[in-house]
Design a binder for these strands. Structure first.
Length: 468
RNA sequence: GCCCCCAUCGUCUAGUGGCCUAGGACACCACCCUUUCAAGGUGGCGGCACGGGUUCGAAUCCCGUUGGGGGUGCCA
């Protein structure tokens, strides 16, 4: 038995070189990466650079960094690049010349305004093929247009099946501008051909351009690549995620304390689902199971709430010591790490993002708790608060300062004031932490220590008495 | 306008003609647990856009309607 010969796939990813990396782009990159890894191929990053991008190397660095964050490692031989479109500029012009010589393209001297005027007069949108048979020679100001053949172009797409386009609706599009520079479409195809790209996986917004690119491949005498147009990501209004309206920058999610693993896992469930009972699966399984053929056809809503749920779950999956280690960069440098470590297990089950960590335990490190007025008013208004606090101060002065003892002590006091423990702990909590909600109280007190606890309780009593 | 794509709970999905009185996840609600808040556990609410076919049988195939999205540059 012989294994069928098959060239290893080369997939390319061509993000627009703006200064940030989009979650939609991240998902497409992940799709590419998963396929390249599973099939033992290569994933090529090619930046479609513009003049502006060429002057901003940090944009490319940002893309590389973002890809690294979501696990697409530049160290891995599967990953190649970045390459730049401009490095193939000579090839673009050469290919255009070949197309002209073979008759697959022709020159046209109409200005955009003239093209539009003719379209309006003819009642048909787009360029009408005016210069097709005029035999114009190349000259400054003249554009090179592709001669779209009659018939139909069938795009064979891994996620959508066969999509047929009637060539009658495709105008003779521009290959070279009047100044001789190549258009994106041409450059793109020439680059892909030169780099021996076998799979083009991109967002579905590119589907209408695909027949044009496919015809170019064929006119250049090359076998077109395998296409895969994946659905776009949309906002709550079902519109494509946009930089202006929506929070789309990958960097922003990192800055807000989302874990890369959670982000990757969530992104992959948009348009696809791993087999089995749960959507929370490690990348190793995604890589092994992901198929472009299984990707959904409909746009998917990027749901922040579900991302948050995934993130919380990923945080809770972390072994405690790793959670502590990961918290380090989220804590102010002057906070005592040993103190935090004692509280970490209580923090871990309560945070949604890493950015929630510090605010949850800040009262332990601040010279004084930041009193939330709403919490104060609600809690201290109770008749029993002041007298109970007085009892607590007295009792805490002598009880062993460990959580279990503190709890027992407060239980006794609560009973004396005819309150349930849930009610009785509230004024203590507000006095010491400044809020009605937070990590478990007695554990917090134990970590805080007797002196500081008593100081805060007394300060609270003073404030209460002043107001009476 | 023209071209293309799409359509399962509010959301993300499973489902590829009988295993579907449609399964899971997020969200929401209730209860349990409980020192607040979480976490965890249990349960609940909730969907095949509509109309025609095809078939013994349709969420699944075909046609149409409606609704959504994308594309229509000498932008990328």
């Amino acid at each position: 038995m012989s294994v069928p010969e098959r060239a290893p796939p080369r997939l390319r990813f061509a993000p627009s070189p703006t200064g940030f990396f989009h979650v939609g782009g991240a998902r497409t990159a992940l799709y590419n990466w998963a396929v390249a890894r599973r099939l033992g191929g290569t994933f090529v990053l090619r930046i479609e650079d513009t003049d502006e991008a060429r002057n901003r190397p940090e944009w490319t660095e940002g893309i590389i960094e973002s890809l690294a964050w979501i696990g697409i490692s530049a160290d891995d031989p599967t990953f190649e690049g970045p390459y730049f479109q401009s490095s193939y500029a000579a090839d673009h012009v050469e290919a255009a010349a070949r197309l002209y010589q073979s008759g697959a393209a022709y020159y046209c001297d109409l200005t955009p305004d003239e093209v539009q005027a003719r379209a309006k007069a003819g009642g048909k949108p787009g360029y009408d093929g005016f210069s097709r048979d005029r035999g114009l020679e190349p000259a400054p100001g003249r554009v090179l247009r592709f001669r779209v053949p009659d018939g139909a172009t069938v795009v064979s797409d891994l996620v959508r099946g066969e999509v047929e386009f009637d060539n009658e609706h495709i105008e003779d599009f521009v290959l070279l501008r009047g100044n001789g520079t190549p258009m994106f479409l041409l450059a793109n195809v020439v680059d892909d051909a030169a780099m021996a790209i076998t799979h083009v996986v991109r967002a579905e917004e590119h589907l209408p351009n695909t027949p044009k690119q496919q015809m170019l491949w064929q006119a250049l005498g090359r076998e077109p690549p395998t296409w895969a147009h994946v659905p776009v990501l949309v906002n709550e209004q079902r519109k494509k995620l946009s930089k202006r309206r929506d929070k789309v920058a990958l960097e922003q999610y990192r800055a807000e304390g989302y874990l890369a693993d959670a982000m990757v896992n969530y992104l992959m469930t948009l348009g696809w689902a791993p087999a089995g009972e749960t959507e929370i699966v490690p990348w190793s399984r995604i890589e092994a199971e992901f198929r472009l053929e299984d990707v959904n056809h409909a746009p998917a809503f990027f749901d922040l709430k579900k991302l948050a749920a995934f993130n919380g779950e990923y945080i809770r999956m972390l072994p405690l010591d790793e959670f502590i280690a990961r918290c380090d960069e989220w804590l102010p440098p002057d906070w005592d790490r040993a103190v935090f470590a004692r509280m970490a297990e209580h923090v871990q089950t309560r945070v949604v993002t890493m950015a929630d960590v510090a605010p949850m335990v800040d009262f332990l490190f601040l010279p004084d708790p930041e009193i939330d007025e709403g919490s104060w008013n609600k809690t201290m208004a109770s008749e029993f608060s002041a007298p109970l606090l007085r009892d607590v101060v007295e009792a805490f002065d002598s009880t062993a300062f460990v959580a279990a003892e503190l709890k027992t002590t407060l239980e006794v006091i609560a009973e004396r004031h005819e309150q349930k423990l849930g009610k009785a702990q509230a004024p203590v909590r507000v006095a010491v932490t400044g809020r009605t909600v937070g990590p478990p109280l007695f554990e917090s007190l134990e970590v805080m220590g007797r002196d500081e606890t008593l100081r805060r309780l007394r300060a609270t009593l003073e404030r209460l008495e002043r107001h009476e």
